[in-house]
Design a protein around this nucleic acid. Structure first.
Lengths: 206, 206
DNA sequence: GTCTATAGCCTGATAGAC
DNA sequence: GTCTATCAGGCTATAGAC
């Protein structure tokens, strides 16, 4: 009698199939939302039959939850990586660069996150007002400290952080629109340049 | 024999019901996406029975299309309202203010638009690469003209426009996250202040 | 571990009485 | 114009053979 595959799979096949399912689910959930996604679609994308997929995850909801947990773990890493001992402006610019690179490399993750937010974050609302808020408040304090020292020009620190999120994630979430307007020009080279200029002018002390 | 209600309803009841349906559909489509929304849900929200709703619109798709058409008509008005004869910086700031007010007053419209973009804009892709592109290109030319005159500091004009969209729409689309982080503080007063500062420092000639 | 078959519910849309 | 009743198809999830 074989037990259902646990969160930490034991065989290579299990690991490979779980990974394929999560990748397929990311694709489908991030473009159709939870209710708009179907298990059939995810199974087809993963190259498995529907019952076989449901052998690895007990339900559609379980796949979605697993996906969101994995996402939250990594989504805020760039924020944690800000070094209180570094040069203020360079730290902020490096953070912006990391976020923009994530939009470029992991657009589906960005869209999954956006989907969840637009829907009112029914499944991660608590995490937002606890873990996320704490992390953002800490970072805001650091930024305000730098501003008080005159090493960054003064702005509302929380809205500064929001601006980084929105400016960078826009290139993942609204990719279609950006490309429709820009034409053949690559969005990300222009974007990197633009946000660098923006934050230098906004934050560099005279 | 009564004809099906046309796009321009003739009676007060028809106008009222069509309006109620579109309002309900806006609510449901903007939070669950097209496939995640159900006709039952929209009918309940509008206070009608499902068959009665389908008397006013032939299909779920037709409601969605009507909604998007109405949205596109108004969504870009703030951009069209930029006055080539006005003061450059003040025109940009006024545009930013209008967009932020739209996020505050019409968050559901913003989220419906975002949903459509995230899903790859399957229903409005052509409009993006034709009408929208033309309008944005024209505005970008105007901005570049102002920059060439030294009345605005130089930045990539298209990305400047993208930045206005992302910064302002963020407060509608990610409302849950913003409020979870800010707590009781009102997002929009802080946001208005922040974006004003941002664009002044980014664009004001020395 | 993976499949076919199917249960049982939900969905979009229609028929027809009033 | 609005309702009840209902169809046909799609949905999640399970049963059971292999």
């Amino acid at each position: 009698m074989t037990a259902k595959p646990a969160a930490r799979p034991r065989t290579r096949i299990q690991a490979k199939n779980r990974a394929a399912i999560l990748d397929a689910a990311l694709e489908v959930f991030s473009t159709h939302g939870f209710r708009g996604a179907t298990v059939d679609q995810i199974a087809a994308e993963a190259g498995l039959s529907k019952p076989n997929l449901l052998y690895y995850f007990p339900s559609k909801e379980a796949i979605h939850t697993a996906l969101l947990e994995r996402l939250l773990d990594t989504w805020l890493d760039p924020l944690r990586a800000i070094d209180p001992g570094g040069d203020p402006l360079e730290e902020v610019l490096a953070y912006v660069r990391r976020k923009l690179e994530m939009s470029q490399s992991f657009p589906r993750e960005s869209r999954l996150f956006a989907m969840e937010m637009i829907q009112g974050a029914p499944r991660i609302h608590e995490v937002l007002s606890s873990d996320l808020k704490v992390l953002v408040d800490e970072t805001a304090s650091l930024l305000e400290h730098w501003m008080a020292q005159g090493r960054l020009r003064r702005v509302h620190a929380h809205h500064l952080i929001f601006s980084v999120w929105s400016l960078t994630q826009h290139y993942a979430d609204f990719d279609v629109q950006v490309r429709a307007v820009l034409g053949p020009e690559d969005p990300f080279t222009g974007a990197a340049d633009f946000v660098e200029t923006l934050y230098r002018r906004l934050l560099a002390p005279d």
